[in-house]
């Protein structure tokens, strides 16, 4: 039920956004559904990651906007440490389509082929910024 409402709301927001885009010609990435993303995150990433702690993979709180490979205390691979800059939603989307393509030899191998799932997971990550 909630899904439907959300889908309609998204469509409406999407239409408004599309109009803005036409008018302003500013590229805006379609935002995912953070609530759906939370469940997906727990299911698909929760074996290795959590927001607050380094586990098999690094802690994720505040990852959007964070320097790549910069979670304190995590032993990153040389492959991911070669990447420069910060995690934007676009780069996270690229990462989740193939960490081995983006950083061959990285210690992460899991892909999320579904675009909507990726957008929702990234929305959940963005909804959990660093604590001040």
């Amino acid at each position: 039920m909630r899904r439907h409402v959300n889908a309609h709301a998204r469509t409406a927001i999407g239409a408004v956004l599309a109009t803005c885009l036409l008018v302003l010609a500013i590229p805006v990435q379609a935002a995912g559904d953070a609530a759906a993303g939370q469940a997906l995150y727990q299911a698909k990433c929760g074996g290795c990651h959590s927001l607050e702690a380094n586990r098999i993979g690094p802690a994720h709180r505040g990852v959007v906007g964070r320097k790549i490979a910069s979670a304190p205390g995590f032993a990153y691979s040389p492959a991911i440490r070669k990447l420069t800059g910060i995690w934007t939603t676009a780069r996270l989307d690229q990462w989740l389509q193939g960490p081995q393509k983006m950083a061959p030899g990285s210690k992460m191998y899991l892909n999320v082929p579904d675009q909507t799932q990726r957008a929702n997971i990234i929305a959940w990550l963005a909804a959990n910024p660093a604590k001040r």
Binding site: Q42, A43, K44, C45, G46, G47, C48, Q100, Y109, L110, N111, V112
Partner: peptide, 13 residues
Amino acid sequence: QGAANAYVGQVAA
């Protein structure tokens, strides 16, 4: 659940 997904999700790799 996380472990099952991690295994299934890495078969292709």
